[in-house]
């Protein structure tokens, strides 16, 4: 190795001072001896491996994720077909049922009314509906995963690094392999990206919530001869509900963040307008749609927090 390095240095101008030799990276070694691979061969190798398993992966993943496409297509067509005078009351009713607060209903009505007034209704509805589907699926899969994690330390040890990775991976990076796997026109492409990005908090907080349930109550449940099932549904999940709901809140907020980025891969909604603002330097379009996203974020956050507070209030012990 030292010889090779010396040779590499010797090949270049001898005038360079001795301390200016390069790090023995692949490219530097390749210069000295052509039998070393270049670093671009590494990236190429990764690409080739991915392309080689792509077809096999697609055969498995395509049918598995097809329902996601159907769900997204269905809900997008529903919000397109349903008239505004039907959709808005339905949304306000959901808000009321979740929060039991007329003030919040009024606030949501004003925000959505404003968005509709400046002709952003369709885009806002598309964004909301995508979030609705993705957040629902996150909860649907995330809560059971979290429960399984809370019951097995081994499983927790395996899943936590995966969650860490999902959480730290920049959102754009999710999109790269997905673009190769699925066609850009398929809704499931951005659906998967959103779910992968947003599912983390609900899993984490479900696991945490169940592990945090008061030991004494669990012991009492055992002492009365509860079965595992009775304990899970009668004690652990209800007592972990505040934490699970905090996870749902986070998941919804993260879906909103991702649905904007996902407009790069043809996700409809307010993100498309933001993208137009950037691409065409249409400052006004970008800023107004950005404001729309902020309003949606506030609505989603307030409603889920109000629901969370209601649960918290009914749970406070002692």
């Amino acid at each position: 190795m030292a010889d090779l390095l010396a040779k590499a240095k010797g090949g270049e101008a001898n005038s360079a001072p001795w301390w200016e030799f390069s790090f023995p990276s692949l490219d530097a070694l390749n210069k000295a001896c052509a039998s070393f691979p270049q670093s671009r061969d590494v990236t190429k190798g990764v690409e080739e491996v991915f392309l080689a398993i792509k077809d096999a992966l697609r055969i498995v993943l395509d049918p598995l994720t097809q329902p996601l496409s159907w769900m997204l297509e269905f809900i997008l067509s529903v919000v397109q077909v349903a008239p505004w005078w039907l959709m808005l009351p339905v949304i306000l009713l959901i808000v009321y049922l979740a929060s039991k607060s007329l003030r919040l209903v009024g606030f949501v009505a004003i925000c959505l009314g404003f968005l509709a007034f400046i002709d952003h209704y369709d885009h806002a509805m598309q964004t909301l509906s995508i979030i609705f589907v993705c957040a629902f699926l996150c909860v649907f899969f995330g809560v059971p995963i979290g429960i399984a994690m809370s019951r097995s330390d081994n499983l927790q040890r395996i899943i936590i690094p995966i969650l860490d990775m999902l959480q730290t991976l920049p959102p754009f990076v999710y999109l790269i392999p997905l673009i190769f796997l699925f066609s850009v026109t398929e809704p499931k492409l951005y659906g998967i990206a959103i779910i992968l990005y947003a599912i983390v908090p609900v899993i984490r907080l479900t696991d945490l919530g169940i592990r945090l349930v008061d030991e004494d109550v669990i012991e009492a449940a055992d002492s009365f001869g509860m079965t595992e099932r009775q304990k899970l549904f009668g004690v652990q999940i209800p007592l972990a509900l505040p934490n699970i709901m905090a996870g749902v809140n986070q998941t919804i907020m993260m879906s909103l963040a991702m649905v904007v980025i996902a407009s790069l891969v043809s996700a409809p909604g307010l993100g498309v307008l933001v993208l137009r603002g950037i691409r065409n330097l249409e400052l006004g379009v970008g800023l107004v749609s950005g404001l729309g996203i902020v309003l949606l974020a506030i609505i989603l956050d307030r409603v889920t927090k109000a629901a969370l507070d209601r649960i918290n209030a009914s749970q406070k012990s002692q």
Binding site: A220, G225, T227, Q315
Partner: peptide
């Protein structure tokens, strides 16, 4: 064991351990 805990023995705890919900 579950039968024993259900039918024969009941327990009262220092910290009450009631179900808050």
């Amino acid at each position: 064991l579950r039968g024993l805990r259900r039918e024969k023995m009941s327990m009262v705890f220092q910290k009450f351990a009631l179900l808050p919900h």
